[in-house]
Each structure stands twice: as C-alpha cells, then as structure tokens.
C-alpha cells in the first residue's frame, strides 16, 4: 500500500519534472520569451550588487561577497535573480504566488546544483510568519500587485533594521505607455500582450511616498534605459520608463 502510493507519486513527479524542466529551459533561453529580462538582468544585478556591497561595507573583491546575508526575492518567477544572488553568497528565499513558477525555478536550481528555498507564498503570508531578511528584492513585481500599500507594508515588516530593499518598476508616463506596452508588447512582441496594465504603473513620486509611509527611508533612485542600437540597458537619470528605488530600514536608536 505504502509502496504503491510511493511509486505513483514518483511517476507523477517525473512527468511534472519533465514539464517544468521544459518550462525552465524556456525561462532561461536567451532568445526566448524572456529575452528582454535576460538583456535587462546584468544591469539590475550589477546595481543590486554595488548597492548591497556599499550598504553593508562588504568586500567587493570576493567572488561571493554576500555570504552571511539573508535575501528574499519576491515574485521570483523562474529564478533569474535568485540564482545569481545565491552564487554571490546570499542565502535566498524565492517567493512567488504562481505554483508553476516555483516548480520551474526549483527544477532549474537543482539542475544547477544551487540551494535555494523556493516557496509558493505571498509577501503578506511570509510577513505573517515572522520571516526577516537583510535584503529584499521586489523587482518588476509591484506593477502586478493588487494592494500596493499593503504589499509594501509587508515588505517593510520583513526587512531587518539596517536592511535594504530594492524596488524596480515602470513609470506611469506616456513614454512608458508607448515603450513598455505599445513597443514591447505590440510592436517588438518582446512580451505577451496584456503583460502590463498601464493603470497599475506607478510614478516615482507615488512609490517614494508609499515606501516612506512604511517607515523605510528611500536612499537612492535611478532610471534604466534601453539603447536599441547597442541592444543594451544602462543606468540613467531618465526615470521616464523603467526605474529602481532603494530604501533602508533605520536601526532603532540605541
């Protein structure tokens, strides 16, 4: 009986693993559906690395400078950020509300031999469980969230005093509408139509207020722009479309 149940489970698992392995291959295909994210990734990873190294005074010459830091990647998708963060030495929890994403990310991480704690959960539930982190990544997520302020409150609760939060999103500007929706979804077909809802985009001023209301202190903001000629992204002062904001949680006065 127990044997029968086990073998059934394992055969189901094998089918599932094959399916999610195929999805992982799709997530990690540089020319596939997620090509824009892969092109964008080195720029935002370098930004996160430099900010975290500076903030905690880490040794940037080390291959794994994040050793000893706990990190939460909210809305981790296929693990495009969780995996590099793990290689940099952080101990990472990747959270995503989509079960398929979590299974995909788990299969890929185990293929890579990376130890990442992937969970199907939400920021609210994780915060309610009392989890705490040195670094929270909240990248290209907030424009997909229903209750933005509630979400940011949960993030803030999970950040340890002295911790650092990253938030990357799209500006609610005409330019963003043109580039991110008309351009990326309709003309270049980089993203499936309907990926973004312009009404959920958020201006830097709104995000600033929402973050600071939770008690965090915004310390840095930067635009990220795409150069179609070099096919590369770079940091810029232009926050008209893509931008990132960094906030820290003050330590209580001793």
């Amino acid at each position: 009986m127990i044997d029968g149940a086990q073998s059934q489970t394992s055969s189901v698992d094998e089918d599932e693993i094959a399916r999610f392995s195929a999805m992982a291959a799709e997530w990690w295909d540089p020319a596939g559906k997620f090509a824009p994210l892969h092109k964008f990734n080195p720029t935002r990873l370098a930004f996160v690395r430099d900010q975290v190294v500076n903030h905690f005074g880490l040794d940037s010459a080390k291959t794994a400078p994040f050793e000893g830091l706990s990190l939460l990647d909210i809305g981790c998708g296929g693990g495009l950020l969780s995996e590099p963060m793990t290689r940099l030495g952080a101990s990472v929890i990747g959270a995503d509300a989509g079960e398929a994403n979590i299974k995909t990310a788990s299969v890929h991480a185990s293929e890579q031999g990376l130890d990442i704690d992937y969970r199907v959960t939400t920021a609210e539930d994780l915060a309610a469980s009392g989890a705490q982190f040195d670094v929270i990544l909240n990248m290209e997520v907030i424009e997909h969230v229903a209750d933005r302020d509630g979400f940011l409150v949960s993030c803030s609760q999970m950040l340890k005093p002295g911790g650092i939060l990253f938030c990357a999103t799209l500006n609610r500007s005409l330019k963003a509408f043109g580039l991110a929706i008309v351009g990326a979804e309709y003309i270049l077909r980089w993203l499936p139509r309907g990926t973004h809802d312009w009404n959920k985009f958020i201006t830097p001023a709104e995000l600033f207020r929402s973050i600071e209301r939770t008690g965090l202190k915004v310390t840095q903001e930067t635009g990220v722009t795409y150069n179609p000629l070099s096919d590369r992204w770079s940091l810029s002062t232009d926050m008209g479309v893509n931008y990132m904001m960094v906030a820290t949680k003050p330590k209580p006065a001793a």
């Binding site: 990690w28 295909d29 540089p30 892969h38 990734n41 080195p42 990873l45 370098a46 690395r49 291959t63 995996e83 590099p84 963060m85 793990t86 290689r87 940099l88 890579q112």
Partner: peptide, 13 residues
C-alpha cells in the same frame, strides 16, 4: 562581468 554579478559563466545568456 557575468561572474561579478553572479550569472552562470557557461550559460547561453
């Protein structure tokens, strides 16, 4: 550059 930001140096990306 890839190693510096934690990317897999052997990956197609």
């Amino acid at each position: 550059d890839a190693q510096r930001v934690g990317l897999d140096i052997g990956a197609l990306v």
